[in-house]
Design a protein around this nucleic acid. Structure first.
Lengths: 381, 381
DNA sequence: TGGACTTCCTTGACATCATCAAAAAACTCT
DNA sequence: AGAGTTTTTTGATGATGTCAAGGAAGTCCA
């Protein structure tokens, strides 16, 4: 239970105070003590070195207590440190610099002309240099990508879209930049960001379902981001929605991704209308105009998503599902179908799970990588 | 992170030593120290009061080290305390007394002639009295049932088969027996038993899928039994297997339980053969004889189960799935269909999850309740 | 205006608990 | 028998959080 006594400067309790203020900040010492089941005197002692080190600041709030000595709300000094987050896709690299709260300060975007490791590393190192330029150097780098990777392990075991197998990209980038570097699965990184700075704050459990080129699912259970060394987590893309549905590229019938991924939606509408030139955004516009074929395709996408969310909620029992991803903007077009499918497939002893839709900019992925690096730096796991 | 300093006699570390020895027992102090990342001296000090209190015993093992001072393997004295476990079904009550390792010492079985709370409590209290008779009184009582209940909350919120809503059965039984009492969902209790004394030992994550009157699923993730206050966990019974399949009693098409629950299997075979008198065991015998209709029904059950297991594994990423329940004896008849469906629905980036089949006696349910009570007594959560 | 009251924060003494260094114990091997 | 090895124990030490007590800084009300 209790962790070993290392000769570190920061105790477990100090870390937990810092995290509590970072995530739920600003809070008075008294309130923090109550939340962490510590004595008030412990908080005086624990916060002192953090304040002196510039990690915490006094930050008044509007709330004024009716009675008693006013509290001195403390908050993390978000600009005390910065992080770099990098998201790799098949043809692009997004990199951001964030503060301690995960707020994006700067971002850059590069084309990836090759998937060769040297080339990718050079691009990352260059972006890191550019983002670190005018200010104090960042504390860590987080890299996120679709594939088998996990903070704490510098090796990307498999990344189909990059064609990588067992590439120790974490170590290579660490050597090239001189900064501690972690690599993390992109959905899990985004989940970490939601846990600390997004809709997951204060939840003991939630799922993050992303809709975009594929369908992903990250989990937080028991206040922990779920990791599955060796196996993946949240592999919902190939969840079967209809045994007689269309084929996905892996030869499954009626996979969720064959209905709800942006590529599948675009393909279906383009094929139905005989217009292979249509972009996803144009398809979405057609759906909004209630063009019959497009509307139907979005309905089916909503149904598939509702089914995925219901299944995840039934199995894991999470309190909340966050819907996000590049294609989540389509939600308004398919909300009715989604709600109906969610209700239909929710286990009859439960009420449908709470769902929030989070609008999404692509740099969110890179931000997730930065927050994953931050979590790893602070919690060391 | 670190838990508060309560004025208990047992420290956190002592508890973790006790649990480590209970679950992985017999272990030398040195080995235990390594596993828990404690110093050897800490172990000398932590074990002393436990040995003096009769909770630990020296227990030699066959292994002899080539070198050095021989170790003194310690093990939990299983007979130091005993627990009562009670499983309630619609028409019966099973009760067992177990030792600290969850070994059943005695069991009783009673018919439940009524679902009235007073009657059920009287039967439980009577069984507890009978089981406690010749020896030292048990330390705690665990009650398990299908429905919404969770250790730490004495109230059964809903139990459809008993017709109970918000019945504080935990408090009532505690008052009637004078023993600390917890109530727990039956599948979760069984999961706890597997975690400490079954196939889940040493696993950070696993799922327990039970097949019987219904289909259930318990989860351990991050070394913790997953609880979902308010919502259920592992509600896989109504997972859709085939959109055009038979109706379940809730009006869903092709639910897993419409294929794989013992009642559904029996109904299907009985209907096909026009013999409503057939029992499940007779159906199983027909399946073993390759009677065509029966064989087909069991195949479909296997397919449904394989799909359930694959879906659970894809979403949660557990290392292992334990298959158990009253109807798991049918596994040999449907293993091929199960394996095929598992492979088919396993996400293509993963290898199929490890599966173990645990033969099952009905008193296993009651044992689960006892272990759930034990876990709650020791971990206090 | 000034006490009563309340809550927040701090201080120093104290208790707990785990580590460290050192040594004793108990065995095998040569 | 002595060297080597690992386990176990011991006592000193240090880190860390609690406790009790009191000071600080407001509001409320006479």
């Amino acid at each position: 239970m209790s962790s070993p006594q290392r000769q570190t400067q920061v105790s477990d309790a100090m870390r937990s105070v810092f995290v509590e203020l970072l995530v739920h900040g600003p809070l008075s010492r008294a309130e923090t003590a109550r939340r962490l089941a510590l004595s008030p005197s412990a908080l005086t002692k624990l916060t002192k070195p953090l304040i002196e080190g510039g990690y915490l600041l006094y930050q008044p709030t509007e709330e004024r207590p009716a009675l008693g000595r006013p509290s001195q709300p403390l908050a993390v000094n978000a600009s005390r440190m910065s992080l770099i987050g990098v998201k790799l896709t098949s043809d692009e690299m997004f990199a951001v610099r964030t503060d301690l709260r995960g707020q994006i300060q700067r971002e850059v975007r590069r084309e990836l002309r090759s998937h060769e490791v040297d080339h990718v590393v050079a691009e990352i190192a260059d972006a890191v240099r550019e983002l670190s330029l005018p200010v104090t150097p960042p504390s860590a780098v987080g890299i996120s990508l679709a594939g088998t990777a996990s903070a704490g392990d510098p090796i990307v075991h498999t990344s189909p879209f990059l064609g990588w197998n067992d590439v120790p990209i974490g170590n290579i980038v660490a050597a090239a930049t001189g900064l501690p570097t972690i690599v993390e699965n992109d959905v899990r990184a985004l989940t970490a960001a939601q846990q600390w700075f997004g809709a997951g704050v204060g939840r003991h459990s939630f799922a993050l379902v992303t809709v975009g080129a594929g369908i992903g699912c990250g989990l937080v259970i028991g206040d922990q981001v779920v990791r599955s060394p060796g196996r993946g987590t949240g592999l919902v893309g190939h969840l079967a929605v209809d045994n007689n549905g269309p084929l996905c590229e892996m030869g499954h019938r009626g996979c969720a991704r064959a209905y709800a991924s942006s590529a599948a939606i675009q393909r279906s509408i383009a094929a139905a209308l005989g217009r292979p030139d249509l972009t996803f955004d144009q398809c979405l516009a057609l759906g909004r105009e209630q063009q019959p074929a497009a509307a139907r395709v979005f309905q089916e996408a909503g149904r598939a998503l509702g089914r995925v969310v219901a299944t995840v909620a039934n199995i894991t029992g999470v309190e909340l599902v966050i819907l996000s991803g590049e294609a989540v903007q389509m939600f308004d077009v398919c909300a009715d179908a989604f709600d109906a499918a969610l209700a239909e497939h929710t286990h009859w002893t439960s009420t449908p799970v709470e769902v929030v839709v989070k609008p999404f900019t692509f740099s969110e992925w890179a931000r997730g990588a930065a927050v994953a690096a931050l979590q790893y730096q602070i919690l060391g796991a």
